[in-house]
């Protein structure tokens, strides 16, 4: 009965990853896009955890800790970029940012 939960876990990771991907494609706000990147990273880390539990190895958790550090660095730089854009009075909407119509 327990082996099923590994497939459930992988399915959960895949669903969460796709939700994050859909979010990053649909939302046009930079803050939401960064949030969706976090969701996708988290889903990938969860897949590592599931695989680590499947083979009873600690490597999956080690990879998750690396992912955690990477997510922290990425969020710090991304949020600093958002604050920079905001302080320069630019909109946080990627469409108007990429077309450059505001400046």
């Amino acid at each position: 009965m327990t082996p099923v939960s590994f497939e459930y876990g992988l399915a959960l990771a895949a669903i969460l990853f796709v939700l994050g991907l859909v979010g990053i494609l649909v939302r046009r706000n930079l803050v939401f896009m960064l949030l969706c990147t976090e969701i996708m990273l988290n889903a990938a880390g969860f897949a590592f955890i599931v695989a680590g539990a499947r083979w009873a190895q600690s490597d999956g958790q080690v990879m998750f800790i690396f992912l955690l550090a990477m997510a922290g660095a990425e969020v710090a730089v991304g949020l600093a970029l958002i604050l920079l854009l905001f302080s320069r009075g630019r909109p946080l909407d990627v469409d108007s940012l990429s077309s450059g119509e505001d400046r």
Partner: peptide, 24 residues
Amino acid sequence: LFLGAAFVAALEIIVYAGAIMVLF
């Protein structure tokens, strides 16, 4: 936690929900 990864579950709450979300 149910998968037997208690340490990482705690890290998820402390680092993700605690630190990164507070940054957001």
